[in-house]
């Protein structure tokens, strides 16, 4: 059970959160101009690193905010947390 630092509410149990996969995969600005391969890349292809991974979470049972955090996939250490749309790490 991870203890996830919501950038607004502070440390909460993982059960309060929803997982949103890899962060910073923006919706393409002009999907119609993409090739099938490029569109498929957006839809289906994600990183799977051993080590730091930037991912999206949402504090479903709390403030309902989406945010990003950097988690080391080898040990679950949470290395940084960001409010959506900001780049400064939050230390709640």
């Amino acid at each position: 059970m991870l203890l996830i630092p919501c950038p607004w509410c502070g440390d909460r149990d993982e059960t309060e959160f929803g997982y949103g996969g890899q962060a910073h995969v923006p919706y393409p600005e002009a999907p119609e101009t993409l090739t099938d391969a490029e569109w498929a890349e957006y839809l289906f292809v994600r990183d799977n690193p051993e080590g730091p991974f930037t991912e999206q979470w949402v504090h479903t049972a709390g403030c309902r905010r989406w945010f990003t955090l950097v988690r080391d996939t080898t040990c679950n250490d949470i290395l940084a947390v960001h409010r959506t749309g900001t780049t400064n790490p939050v230390h709640p």
Binding site: G18, Y27, Q56, V58, T60, W66, G85
Partner: peptide, 17 residues
């Protein structure tokens, strides 16, 4: 219901602030 609301919030908060 819950999944739709969460999904709407995702678009509003992360893509279309």
């Amino acid at each position: 219901a819950a999944a739709v609301l969460e999904w709407m919030e995702m678009w509003l908060q992360t893509e279309w602030p």
